[in-house]
Every structure is written in C-alpha cells, then in structure tokens.
Design a protein around this nucleic acid. Structure first.
Length: 513
RNA sequence: GCCCCCAUAGUCUAGCGGCCUAGGACGUCACCCUUUCAAGGUGAAGAUCGCGGGUUCGAAUCCCGCUGGGGGUACCA
C-alpha cells in the first residue's frame, strides 16, 4: 500500500475542460444556521452544476452526534432557497440515492460494509485505544522528550495478529476503525483552483485517521467519501479547510479502488479584519439575518458569486443567468476573500434601485407592519399610502429595514424635535417665525395640493421673501418632518397632505415664539 | 511547534513574459447637480505589484529563499 500512496493522477487530471456530465454536492453539517461562507461554497457548486448542465445534490452530514442542532437542516435549506440555490436531489425531495441524510444512511449499514472491507484488505484496522489511552500515549511521547505537538497517532493494533484482534473483540472492548496510514512516502493530488497544480503531503505528517467511531457512526472522512462514490459525484468543490485532510481521502479512494473525483478547494471568506475565517459564533453572518435586514436575494447571490470568483476586469453587476453562463472554476481565486459588508450594502442598494417602485412597496410592507406603522393585516389604503411614499425613499435605501425609520414622521400624530433646528443659517428665531407663517399662508392658498403647485407657490415665496431656497425649505422640512435630513420637500408635503402639513408648520411657528 | 495553501492600493479584484505610464469596484476626499440627504456625473488621493535573489533582450506575471497572512494538526465537520 505504501508504494501506491505516491499517487499520480495522470495527465487527464490536469484538463480543466469538463467533458462528461457533472455531479456535485453541497454537504453541510446541521450544527447551526448556515452562514454566508457556507452559502458561497454551496453557490459555487450550484453554479458549476448549472453551467455544465449537471446535477447539484444536497446532502446533510449529521455524523457528529454531539453538535447536532435540531432544525438546523431546515434553516440551511431555507437559506439556500432564499438565495436562489435549488437542488436536484436532497433530503426533502429524494432522488435515486435517497436517503440524503447520513444518519439515515448509517442506519442502513451503508458505511459499515466499506469500513469492514478496508479492515479485511489491510488498509484499515480495529483500534481499541480509548480516548484516555490516547492521552497516555501522548504523555509517554512527551516524556520521551518529543514535542507533544508532533505526536501523530499510530495504533499499536497495526501490527496485531488476527488472534490478538479476535481476543480483544471477544472481550467486548469498544473499538474504532482507523485508516492504516503508511509511515513513508507522500500523497499528492491535483486541485483545479490552483490551476491543476499538485499538492503533496508527506505521509509521516499524517496519522491513523478514525473512519468509524466506537458508536458505529462514520466520521466525515469515511461518510462523505462513500456517499460521493455511491452518488456518482464527479467534482468535489469544498472549502480550503479540507486541503490538509485530502490526502486521507486520496488514500481511501485508492484503497477502495474507486474512481477519483476532481478536487477544487475554494478559498475561505475571511473576517472583516482579516483575522481568521468567518465564524458563526463571532460574526453576524447568518444568512437569515440578511433576509431580515432587507437584502435582496439577487444582491446576495451576486455579491457572493464575487467572493473568490470574478468574470473579468470590470463586470460586477450580473444576473443569475449571466453568472451561470460565465462561471468557470479556472476563474476561482486561490487566495482568500475578505468579508466586506459595505460592498454588499452598496450592491443591495443598486438592486433595490433597479426595481420598480411598486415592487419596492411590496417588499417594504412587512417591515412597516413589523414596525407597527401599518396595521396587520394591511388595508388597501395602507398599501396605496405606502406606494405614494416609496418613491421618496426608494433610491435612498440600502437595506429594506431602513424604511420605517425614514418614513416614521408620516405615521406620527405629533412629531418632536428641537425648535432651534427650525432656524436656518443666517436666520434668527423671529425671522424664522415670519417665513414659517408666510409659508403657511402660501400653502393655504393652494387649490390643488399637488407637487407641482406646492413647488410653484414655495418658489414664488422664496422670491418675494428674498431668502435663499435652503433657508425657507430647510425650515419647512424640519417643521413637517422633525429632521434636517429627509426626503425631497415638495414630494413630502404632497404625500403628507394639506391638513397635516399646515398644522405642523403652524405648530413650528408657535414653538419658536 | 509541525504540515499545507496564499500574497496587486484600507478592502474585493483584473492581469496568466512585452498591449501596464498596473484596469475596474467598495470605501475616502473634492467638485458639479441641488431645498437637506441620497442617487447620478466628473475628478483626486491611495499599489516602489510583501521583501531579496535569480531566469530572460524583457517579469506583477516563471524559479528559489525570506517575511507576512490564512488553513490544518479531533472518535468536529
């Protein structure tokens, strides 16, 4: 076995051109919500499958009994659907290789038999060392003066006779099945993301990996590989954190004599400060949080596609179809990307602006309801009122959740603010009262309360008062909205309505007296 | 510590030996537009292509070393 470990995949392996039908999978572990880094990896698999007209499989890898989180699989699937990633085979829709949940597959004995085969062929062995026993081995290693960090587990059972193994087994002692990794030689594999270059790791740096736990549950290493083989996965596209364990996988494929898939280890997304990869614990990156905050799935899809992949030297805004058409692995970067929420936000704004205002009003409604500004369920008049004010903030939105805050003054019976905000540059309280009164009179004389008439009257008033536009409009803005930064004034007045506009302006004048 | 991967402006990236006086985007700043804020337009600052050696007529692009960053080092994935 040792000799065959120095593997060579052959020239054909270097070919980036994809010829036959491709099958790829995304295989998350249900240990919590799906964060955007996971979505990105799923997305690359999906794009690869769609680009080449192949299949995309979703498989739940719940072989970690300790970290299993109820409902996590549902959240993962909901997150993927939201972004727009669908699957051809998966837990909820079945497929030719169902079930697609590993704990269910384990119950079917799917992993036990290959593990036994490996033991029978001498590529793996039953190991009776307990966790405590392993600790003792590490301690003994250190006691010999060796660096504890350099300890590489090798089970004493590697050299046991059949009789010894039989005896231990007969005693009922629990055991794991471990891969019998050669001490010498090296293991290599090619990686598409690194231009087909070879990655080589010395076998001496490896250890005897556990394939089957004492519980009978396979580890990721055995389970994913057996399933990939059974499910006919042609390309393994996964995060680069898997590079160091890839040699074990290579050994397993060789030990089984199975067709090797092509590997593509895609770069991680690093935290904003670059210190480590994104983690669901430390970073606010759960996919459903972005849905909550009002990110459009199209924007998220587009942004994520650019985390580690690019099309050319300038194109960034692309539709799903365009990305599918253009996505190839050779344009996937080997260096890690960095999480950049500002860029995502900017892109979300672009996507929001590209939508018709009526669509945006529909999207905004749930946020207004949640903020308590619009009744649940909304009435027809609420819908039309929201539709009137949506154009006022449409191009100012970067996240849909910003809408209630921006529109709050439309929904308040009385607004509160510091009266001194009414006083514009080079004005004083008395003069401000004067122009507010004048504005009240001018607006009161309007027959048709429309944007154009409001503008006409107020611009005429600027002339007759001899003030700067900003001085008059600024005072009125504060008077009706309570803020110095607000949507365009004439539109605001039009939507706010004659009565409320006049009342607020009158109240403002009083507050300064 | 050891192993593996990576390395172009604050950030994301284009570049795969001569088209680069290094292109685009986010962010920053200025100006224009303008009733505020945005959006939009124009422009600016910001990269001795991490450092040092090679190879070559010629290197951001190829090779080596160093440094830095990331990943891994589990009966977790």
């Amino acid at each position: 076995m040792a000799d065959s470990m120095s593997s060579s995949m052959g020239e054909s392996y270097l070919m980036v051109e994809i010829t036959g039908p491709v099958r790829v999978r995304f295989a998350p572990s249900p240990t919590g919500f799906l964060h955007i880094g996971g979505v990105r990896t799923a997305l690359f698999n999906w794009l690869f499958a769609r680009h080449y007209g192949g299949q995309f499989i979703l498989r739940i890898e719940d072989t970690d009994e300790k970290r299993f989180v109820q409902d996590a699989a549902d959240d993962i699937m909901a997150s993927m659907r939201w972004v727009g990633i669908n699957w051809d085979e998966g837990p909820d829709k079945g497929g030719p290789h169902a079930p697609y949940v590993q704990s269910e597959r384990k119950a079917l004995g799917i992993y036990q038999r290959p593990a036994d085969e490996l033991v029978a062929s001498g590529h793996a062995y039953k190991c009776f060392v307990t966790p405590e026993g392993e600790e003792a081995m590490r301690a003994a290693w250190a006691a010999k003066g060796e660096r504890p960090e350099r300890f590489r587990f090798r089970g004493p059972e590697r050299d046991w006779t059949h009789a010894q193994v039989a005896e231990a087994e007969a005693s009922g002692a629990p055991f794991t099945i471990r891969l019998k990794v050669p001490f010498d030689g090296a293991t290599s594999f090619h990686d598409l993301v690194r231009g087909g270059d070879q990655i080589t790791i010395n076998n001496a740096d490896l250890y005897d990996l556990v394939l089957l736990k004492t519980s009978g549950m396979p580890t990721y290493h055995l389970a994913h590989l057996v399933d990939d083989h059974i499910m006919g996965v042609t390309h393994v596209i996964r995060g680069e954190e898997w590079v160091p364990s890839a040699p074990y996988h290579i050994m397993l494929y060789q030990a089984f004599g199975w067709q090797m898939p092509t590997f593509a280890h895609v770069p991680n997304i690093l935290r904003q400060d670059g210190k480590g990869k994104l983690s669901k614990r430390r970073d606010d990156v759960s996919t459903n949080r972005f849905w909550e905050r009002g990110y459009l799935p199209e924007a998220m899809f587009n942004y994520l596609s650019l985390q580690g992949w690019s099309y050319d030297d300038k194109t960034e805004i692309m539709s799903r179809e365009e990305i599918v058409e253009r996505f190839t692995i050779d344009r996937v970067q080997a260096s890690p990307a960095r999480w950049n929420p500002d860029k995502l936000k900017d892109m979300n704004g672009i996507y929001i602006r590209s939508l018709p205002a009526t669509d945006v009003a529909d999207l905004l409604m749930p946020y207004m309801v949640k903020a308590g500004m619009i009744a649940d369920p909304p009435q027809a008049k609420d819908r039309s009122y929201l539709e009137q004010m949506t154009p006022l903030i449409h191009e100012r939105l970067e996240e849909l959740q910003q809408a209630p805050e921006l529109l709050a003054f439309f929904f308040q019976d009385t607004i509160s603010y510091e009266p001194k905000l009414l006083i514009q540059k080079q004005m004083d309280a008395a003069r401000s009262v004067d122009i507010l009164r004048a504005a009240h009179a001018a607006l009161n004389s309007i027959e048709n309360w429309t944007i154009s008439e409001i503008e006409e009257h107020l611009r005429a008033l600027v002339e007759s008062l001899g003030v700067k536009p900003g001085q008059l409009f600024g005072s009125i803005r504060v008077a009706v909205s309570g803020r110095t930064v607000a949507p365009p004034l004439f539109d605001t007045l039009a939507v706010l309505g004659r009565d409320r506009s006049l009342a607020r302006i009158a109240a403002a004048a009083v507050s300064l007296e």
